[in-house]
Computed example of a mutant assay.
Amino acid sequence: MSHATQRLTYADGIRQGFEYAMERDPKCFAIGQGLWSPWYVGNSMKDLDKKFGKERVIDTPVSELATTGAAVGAALNGYHPIVVHPRMDFMILAADQIVNQAAKWRHMLGGKVSPTITIRGIINRGGEQGAQHSQALHSWYAHIPGLRVLMPGTAADARDMLIAAAQSPDPVMYIDDRWCYELTEDVTVAADVDIRSIVPLVRRAGRDVTVAAASFSLKLALDAAEILAREGIDVEVIDVRQINPLDPALIVESAARTGRFVAVDGGWSTCGLAGELIACVAESVVPSKLKAPLARVTLPAAPAPTSAPLEKLYYPTARTVADRIRGLFA
């Protein structure tokens, strides 16, 4: 087996994931808004319409509900669509198709039929886009049984998790973040990926405090760990990766060992991923093993601002995360 590597950005990883899935599965197709555009989804689907034809890379009118409904119907009839929603905010318009249709059919039909569908929701924040274009709504969908939810935080995972989603018999929501698109790493060649193998991973080992995060929040956690390492604080960073179903075993083990835990999330606190991670630790770690209260870093409880100076205050940074972790040692 080849161990050759290549330098890959997160956005190129997504594109390679599409390419790998569509080359190997003639029933796999992409459908959504702006798929023929050179800018609408960044470089993450560049020239795929030229390679696979516009019959398999389908640029649709602006109707999230109709596009997703058509894809669910195609999936129930043996096709393997990947639906692309360039802004997660407007994917809300397809919520019935995702929550009441895709996520439910396998259960309601006794496992005899399952829509093999991937729903790609893109988080697209900042740049003074305002409250209706800046939301990370992953915790909404992670609440739904029957719907797998993936959040890649590295270039390799951006590629491999999309491959896993396209090959999964379960309906999958694949959530990528534009703030990750320039992240770069050396990766090995693409291969088939079993979605059941996507579990939390330690991205940085440490002994003093555990930090769990997913997607762009993973970068914040890793950067915060670098800041704190210069101060003698050794941070263990865990990449959650698949948030539904959530396998908390590694997170719980790490928190019990370090005695301190921080959850970092790009959504709001109320009923969010950070709260769920804290609950997993609180339910499983004996209180006597904890050296500090459990903590989290999330967005302020307010819609996103449009003003650039206010955005700098609104979005957490690596220093925000470092400050929160540092406070556990006071």
Rank of each mutant, 00 (worst) to 15 (best):
G111I: 10
H80K: 05
P305F: 08
C271S: 15
T298Q: 12
R326L: 06
L310H: 07
M1Q: 15
R24Y: 02
D25M: 02
P293T: 13
K219L: 15
G153Y: 10
R207G: 11
V84M: 11
S134H: 02
K291E: 14
M1F: 13
G153K: 07
N43G: 11
S37K: 04
W105F: 06
L93F: 12
R87V: 00
K51Y: 10
A292K: 07
G121K: 06
A131W: 06
C180P: 06
H133Q: 03
I163W: 08
L310T: 09
S114H: 00
T298K: 08
D59F: 00
R260L: 13
P300D: 10
R326K: 09
Y10A: 08
Y315K: 03
E182P: 04
G53H: 08
R260A: 11
E55R: 08
A301E: 15
I227N: 03
E311T: 10
G73Y: 09
K112L: 13
G32C: 04
D157Y: 09
Y141I: 09
R207P: 14
F90I: 03
I119E: 05
A274V: 09
D234R: 11
D265M: 00
N43H: 11
V113P: 05
L220T: 04
V83C: 07
G126R: 02
A205L: 13
D157K: 14
A302K: 14
S197H: 14
K104F: 07
L290R: 05
A214T: 02
H3E: 12
D96H: 03
G206T: 15
E64P: 01
L147S: 10
P316C: 09
A322N: 05
D12R: 13
D208H: 15
K50S: 14
A95E: 04
I82H: 14
N100W: 08
V262Q: 04
I144V: 14
G127C: 01
G127T: 09
I82F: 11
P245E: 06
G275W: 07
A191S: 14
A205S: 13
L183E: 15
G259I: 11
L299T: 04
V113N: 03
N77A: 04
P287T: 00
T5S: 04
A229F: 12
V286S: 15
V113M: 10
R203A: 12
A255V: 10
R260Y: 11
I238T: 12
K112G: 05
I92H: 05
K51N: 09
C280Y: 02
R196I: 06
D265L: 01
A102G: 01
T298V: 14
E185C: 01
K27H: 06
D239P: 05
F261D: 03
G13E: 12
S288Y: 15
D89L: 01
V172K: 03
W36P: 04
R204T: 11
V41I: 15
V199Q: 11
T68L: 00
R87N: 02
F29P: 00
A165P: 09
I122Y: 12
V202I: 13
A164V: 08
S269F: 14
C180Y: 11
F29Q: 03
E253I: 04
S254M: 06
L183P: 12
H138W: 05
I92N: 09
P26F: 00
V211W: 07
S139H: 12
L137S: 07
L250R: 05
L220K: 05
R24Q: 05
L250M: 01
P309Q: 03
L277P: 09
E128S: 15
M161V: 15
A156G: 15
E23R: 06
V149A: 01
S288G: 07
L201Q: 14
L35D: 10
D12I: 15
